[in-house]
């Protein structure tokens, strides 16, 4: 028997919104430690990895590991039936071919349940090595979203250049060029407004706007985003979920032909 109850059900809605652009289907791996998911987008260019720790749920029971393969478009249809202040419970029997979502209003006066068919997905799991990154940038997630959106008007790619002083995002296209520079700024009133750079050595890497824009669907999940970069290895874009886990996206830099 698997059962996970989240009073803050809106969080689950946001998690789904953050991955459904990239993934049509995925397997939610449920274990005693929590729920995890790892999947590549259909073109195998980017990877999504997320973790929701069991202690972040208000009630969590997982007698044995279960793999819940889901069509995420269908899951999103069901999640749309939950209000933002609903309590959400996910339930599945061992070896079941369906999953049940229960939505309760905070006053318990309305309880809805939706049963969805599960899929048997042939999932490839990739091992992600621990990496010491040359640059780690922490910045407001809304700012990152804004920059990705703005620069994708200029070109298909964004060059992210990071030094100790700051981080620069650049794009070039038929109409001209655009640059956005952010200075390191840890002395702000609110922690979430800080731009903090941990640099071992400077990097300058090129990434596809299309994927960066998809990653920013996770913006509502966290006030800050963390970009980890090294030459010739995939960028990690991480959104930390308070007391719960993370959503991470991996994207390899473009290579000059």
């Amino acid at each position: 028997m698997f059962e996970a109850r989240l009073v803050q059900g809106a969080l689950l809605k946001k998690v789904l919104e953050s991955i459904k652009d990239l993934l049509n289907e995925a397997t939610w791996e449920c274990a005693a430690t929590g729920i995890s998911l790892q999947a590549m987008d259909s073109s195998h260019v980017s990877l999504v990895a997320l973790n929701l720790r069991s202690d972040g749920f208000d009630k969590y029971r997982c007698d044995r590991n279960v793999s819940l393969g889901m069509n995420l478009t269908n899951m999103a249809k069901i999640m749309k039936c939950a209000s933002n202040d609903d309590v959400i419970t996910i339930k599945a029997q061992d070896d079941a071919d369906t999953v049940t979502f229960v939505f309760e209003t905070p006053n318990q006066e309305k309880i809805s349940d939706y049963e969805m068919k599960l899929m048997n997905l042939d999932t490839e799991h990739l091992g992600i090595p621990d990496t010491d990154y040359s640059c780690i940038v922490k910045m407001p997630s809304v700012e990152f979203q804004r920059i990705c959106r703005d620069l994708s008007q200029i070109g298909d790619s964004v060059v992210i250049s990071c030094t100790k002083e700051g981080v620069k995002f650049s794009a070039a296209g038929d109409l001209g060029t655009g640059n956005v520079k952010l200075a390191q700024n840890a002395n702000v009133d609110k922690e979430e407004e800080a731009v903090v750079i941990e640099m071992q050595e400077p990097v300058s890497l090129t990434f596809a706007c299309r994927y960066l824009n998809s990653f920013t669907k996770a913006t509502p999940l966290a006030p800050q985003v963390q970009l980890s970069m090294s030459s010739d290895v995939p960028l990690v874009v991480e959104y930390k979920l308070e007391d719960m886990g993370y959503v991470r996206y991996y994207l390899a830099p473009k290579i000059e032909d």
Binding site: H44, E124, L126, G127, Y250, I255, E256
Partner: peptide, 14 residues
């Protein structure tokens, strides 16, 4: 021009 490598070429299957 630049090429977009696949993520699967960076990480090993487990």
């Amino acid at each position: 021009t630049s090429a977009q490598p696949k993520i699967s070429s960076y990480f090993q299957k487990t």
